[in-house]
Amino acid sequence: MPHQCTNCGHTFADGSKEMLSGCPECGGNKFQFHPGEIPDDAPDDGTEEPPERPDTGVPSAVGKAAATVRDFVRDDSAPTPPPDDAPPSDEATPRDDATTQGGDAPETGGASSTGSRASDDADGHDSADETAADADADVEDTAQASARSEMVTDDDLPERPPSEGRVVKEPDADADEPDMAALREELNEQFESIKVLAPGQYELNLMELYDREEYIIALQENGRYVIEVPETFAGSDRREE
């Protein structure tokens, strides 16, 4: 039996509803999941998953809804029931709605449109379900599968918009900084080698004066320089002419 109370060791069938209201034996609400058969003695390892399920109740609800949907699909029953069953899952939580619809919508669509598709889907799920022989196990597996898909889609759905939002924001924030850095560099580059504060008052950028190829030979008070153009420049000018 896949689920076991970590407190008293009571075991439950996979997908059992008993667990939802706590362990009937001891009232414990921590359960351990064992994929295969478990001994009656309850080893207390792997307690990560059980706490989540009963605590939240949401995954189990989702699992239940998904399982019922799956069952309808599996049975190739009328297309109407799945939508009928979907609303309960909607009622459970909006999150469930998205996940169950996201995960199972294609399947229900396939079931409603053609039986072959539905059987294909069913086959696909059968292969997944092969791990468990019981009908209970089957239900549990679909719950597991949907829980897994739910986790994925859940992560995707809430994360994507924020992550996209972040992606939008972060580049802005990032872009701001590079822009500022670039601006500073640009300003530094543009910072004149000689800044005329007023006639007779100058600030000199020594590195710029050192770095520049052309040679300032005369200053004019209108802020212009007379510069000596390097020969290489003159040469290229001649070529251009």
């Binding site: 006639p199 007779g200 004066l209 050192y210 200053l219 008070e221």
Partner: peptide
């Protein structure tokens, strides 16, 4: 005089530019 001082200042600035260019 101010005019002379301003002229000297301008020439000095040009001189610094020249010195830096020579250093290069």
């Amino acid at each position: 005089e101010k005019d002379e001082a301003v002229r000297r200042s301008r020439e000095a600035t040009e001189g610094v530019a020249e010195a830096m260019h020579w250093l290069r």
